[in-house]
């Protein structure tokens, strides 16, 4: 493996469309970036913003949410509800200093295996460009090396927080 940053991405898929699109990409042996790990939901409407926050705080560098195309939801129109949450969630994430591009919404029908593969690869590239999320998992609730408040000028150096690297 090369030294380039390999992001970890959690993908939420709808049971009826995008999960099947992923299946189709598989059946058709389309190759795409291996950085995405999928979670099946019954519908993109099931996507609780908590899941996204949990994934991002738990070590994911990006989250991909996929659902049926607008107007094609198997539960009639629940994907619109996912869309609304997504748009608000992005605004909140921006306020928290997380690049909103780290969360992406993709519409992919069960027939769009190629699109699923292409969008996944593209998203991995986008996240690769953004770099690691570097989200501190402060198990003891504490930063690793707090430093003194300086003597006569700003000398506070909460040193940059390193992502936990597998041993």
């Amino acid at each position: 493996m090369t030294d380039q940053f390999e992001p970890t991405i959690i993908g939420f898929t709808c049971n009826w469309c995008s999960y099947r699109a992923a299946d189709l990409a598989g059946t058709a042996r389309m190759k795409y970036a291996p950085n995405v790990r999928l979670i099946r939901l019954m519908c993109s409407g099931r996507l609780d913003p908590t899941f996204v926050l949990r994934a991002l705080s738990g070590g994911a560098d990006g989250v991909m949410i996929t659902g049926c195309h607008p107007g094609e939801c198997h539960y009639i129109e629940q994907n619109y509800k996912a869309l609304r949450r997504f748009l608000l969630l992005k605004r909140v994430l921006t306020g928290l200093g997380i690049e909103p591009e780290r969360v992406k919404l993709v519409w992919a029908s069960a027939a769009e295996g190629a699109k699923f593969a292409a969008e996944t690869t593209a998203f991995v590239e986008e996240i690769r460009k953004l770099g690691p999320l570097c989200w501190g998992k402060d198990e003891d609730g504490r930063m690793k090396d707090d430093e003194d408040i300086g003597n006569s000028s700003i000398k506070i150096h909460p040193s940059s927080f390193e992502k936990e690297v597998p041993a």
Binding site: L105, V106, A118, A122
Partner: peptide, 14 residues
């Protein structure tokens, strides 16, 4: 936002 798929991808050109 679901953004415009790249023209090349749609054309099957990767």
């Amino acid at each position: 936002m679901p953004h415009m798929t790249d023209e090349r991808v749609r054309a099957g050109l990767t």
